[in-house]
Every structure is written in structure tokens, then in C-alpha cells.
Amino acid sequence: MRYAFRLAELLGHNPDRRRRPGTIKAIVEHTGLDRHQVASLLKNEAKYIPIEALSKLCDYLIDHGHATPAELPGALFAVRAEHFWELLARRRQLELCVGIRQGDVNDAPEQAWVVASDSVLMGALLNGVSTLGGSARHHSAGSSANGSTKAEENPPQPERLLQTLVWSPGHVSAEETNLRANSVYESFSGAPGDKAMVCIGSVKSNPVAEVLFSEAFGCDPFVSQDDVEKASDRACPFFMRYRDFDPKPPSSTAGERLSKTEAADKPGLWVETDNGTWEWAGGGQNSDVALVFYIFREALGRLDMVLSGFTGRATRYLAKTLATRSEAFWPPVYEEPHVQIGAYIVEYETDGSKAKSEDLLMTNVSSAAKITPLSAKAIARRIVSNG
């Protein structure tokens, strides 16, 4: 069993330099600890911590009301996840965010709806978290030598489950859509404690995914990057090329061109490779595609995730893939001591035939999946570490 140090989470410390409230300075002045040591502990980078330093940190947390004596020092340590579903299940709060649509602008808001494919994917997600992908029955740690049951006998579960609805682009004004998306993400970011947000759907259907990507890669949300000088100047190492008939909300991670001079001649997902070139990853008539992306800031106990099918069909396929092949999305592709990133393209072969009406009611559809991690080098060139 591996452990992570939760000092930043207990303090509600944000690693973004623009938002730091002087946390390091306050701890140093109260404890007398070295500034670099405190910074390392906040980022979960320290290899060890002396008992004396641990005692001083406990005193600081108690004196400032961040924890009680009975909770310490245990509250400073968290068990590290060892597979994909456990990463989600160990969060105390799990928030699921999905886009809603309405058929006509004159329809009453209560008549808005969630598309069937997003509903199927959400069901697969809830099943995976609640059963650890079917492995919960094997999770018992057994009994100790004196016959007592160990604390890990019961599989981890979120203490709080939330659902958030946002407008899909094109169903209300862009201003209202973006305002709601920003508000939801800011509310999640500001919530205290160990938490996760999972966005269901691509930026075509869920604008919070756009905000999440922009936060991870340090760019402005809802601003197209189709006019950058070259594709390597894009902030994000993956790009969704809209189809001609798709809604086309301005996006930092989607559009119609890779750059001013580089066209994206096929709709679907494009990814940057190790050497900086861009390749088409699927999304045509005979090749559908999905994206699994997550960024885990371990010291904060914070997980941001997007589960995104390029089409409704790919979204349904992804639900099945998560249920049967979750091990392919672990371990993360890119790791630093304070941040872990998983990013995977899932390509599906299709026969190009049109879906039948009864297919809409099928919730267990599947297709052969090719799962490819994104380039760790491409991520490293772009990621905002906020160290």
C-alpha cells in the first residue's frame, strides 16, 4: 500500500502562483521549517519527513483550525490509488457533469434532455466506481493476526455524489453557456477536500470539458486556436476537427484547422507525436474514436476527468470499453510528484452502416478497441505544472 501526503488538501492550498494566499510563508513563520521543505511537502514531492517536522505541521494545523488533535497525524496521509476505478472511488466527493439540450428554443427549460449515449456512459461510470470495475468483491484485506478486521476490508466509495447539468453549445446563447460552464468549474475548484469531477461528452456537448482542458494546458477557454502560426503552437496536444454539420463552438481544443498553414483534412481526433508532428487518430466513416483524459493533483486530492466520444456511437462504445478494459487507462501517461495525467485515444473499427432505430435502446454495444496513450513528451511540452 502506498501513501500520499495531504498537507495541501487540508490547507486548501492552490498551487497556482496567481492564487496562492501566502501559505508557505505562514507555515514557515509558525513552524520554523525550511521554506523549500514546506514547498516540497505541499507538492507531495518530499521523499521523507522527520518526526519533528511532522509534529510542527500538526501543531500548525491544529492552531489554525484545519484539523483536530484526534485526526492527526492520520489526516495528513492518504492511500494512493493503484488502478483506474480506485482513483475515482477514493475521492470523497464525486461530481458528474453532463450537457443538456432542448429541441426548440421555445421549449420550456424543464423539457431539456440528456442524449442517450451520454446516459449510457454515465451508467457505466457509476457502475465502475461502485464496484471498482467488478473487483470490489476481491478487495477485502482479510483479518489481522488477532482476528480483527482491517480498515480496508470494505472497498473505497465516495462519501458524496453530485450531478451537475450545463447547457450544450447552441441551445442557449454562447454567453449563457460559457457563463454556466465557468461557474460550475469554479465551484468545483473552490470546494474543500478530496474531490473529483468527471465531464461526460466532448466540447461539442459539454462546455465544462473546454474549461477543464484550458485550465490543464494554460490557455483561454472558448477561444479558437485555428489561427496559430503552426500546429506545435497549439496549447493542447490533441485536437478535435469538427465535421461539417457539427456545432462549432469556439474552442482551444477543437476547430477546423490545425494552424494557419496546416489543414486538418479529416474530421475526428488529431494528436501530437513525440517528434512534434500531428497525426489523425480516427473519426471517419469506418473509424470512430473517443478520448479519456484525466489530471490528478495528488497533494490536493483533486481529480479532473473528461470521457469524450467523437460521436454518440463512440460514446456508447467507450462505456463498454471502460467496463471491460479499464486496466488500459492505468498507470497515468505522464507523472510528476505533484501531478499525474492520463490521456488515451480509443479507436473503434466500424462497418460504416447506419444505426438502426432499435440500436438506440442497446446499452451494451461494443466494438474492437485500439487504446493508445498520448505522447508523454507532447504533454510535457505543454502541461502547466503550476509548481
Results as ranks from 00 to 15, higher is better:
Met1Arg: 10
Asn14Cys: 11
Arg18His: 13
Arg19Met: 05
Gly22Phe: 05
Ile24Leu: 13
Val28Arg: 13
Gly32Val: 05
Asp34Leu: 05
His36Gly: 12
Leu41Phe: 05
Tyr48Ser: 15
Ala53Ile: 04
Ala70Asn: 06
Arg80Gln: 14
Glu82Ala: 13
Glu82Tyr: 07
His83Met: 06
Glu86Val: 02
Leu88Glu: 07
Arg92Asn: 15
Leu94Val: 08
Gly99Phe: 01
Asp104Ser: 11
Asp104Pro: 01
Asp104Glu: 12
Val105Pro: 11
Glu110Val: 10
Gln111Glu: 14
Ser119Pro: 03
Val120Glu: 00
Val120Leu: 04
Val120Ala: 04
Leu121Thr: 01
Leu125Gln: 01
Leu125Asp: 06
Ser135Ile: 09
His139Val: 00
Ser148Asp: 12
Pro155His: 12
Pro158Trp: 03
Glu159Lys: 10
Leu162Glu: 14
Trp167Phe: 10
Pro169Ile: 08
Glu175Thr: 11
Glu186Ala: 12
Glu186Leu: 10
Lys195Val: 04
Val208His: 03
Glu215Gly: 02
Glu215Asp: 15
Cys219Tyr: 05
Pro221Leu: 05
Phe222Ser: 06
Gln225Tyr: 07
Tyr242Trp: 07
Tyr242Val: 00
Asp244Tyr: 10
Phe245Val: 12
Asp246Thr: 04
Pro247Asp: 09
Pro250His: 07
Lys260Val: 08
Lys260Ile: 04
Thr261Ile: 11
Glu262Lys: 07
Ala264Ile: 03
Lys266Met: 11
Trp270Thr: 10
Val271Arg: 10
Asp274Val: 07
Thr277Arg: 11
Trp280Tyr: 15
Ala281Asn: 08
Gly282Ala: 01
Gly284Trp: 00
Gly284Pro: 01
Gln285Val: 09
Tyr294Pro: 03
Phe296Ala: 12
Leu303Met: 07
Phe310Gly: 08
Leu318Met: 01
Thr324Arg: 11
Thr324Ile: 03
Phe329Tyr: 12
Pro332Val: 00
Pro337His: 02
His338Lys: 10
Val339Glu: 11
Gly342Trp: 07
Tyr344His: 14
Glu347Asp: 14
Glu349Asn: 09
Glu349Asp: 13
Ser353Gly: 05
Ala355Thr: 12
Ser357Arg: 14
Met362Gly: 03
Asn364Tyr: 02
Ala369Ser: 06
Lys370Met: 10
Ile379Ser: 05
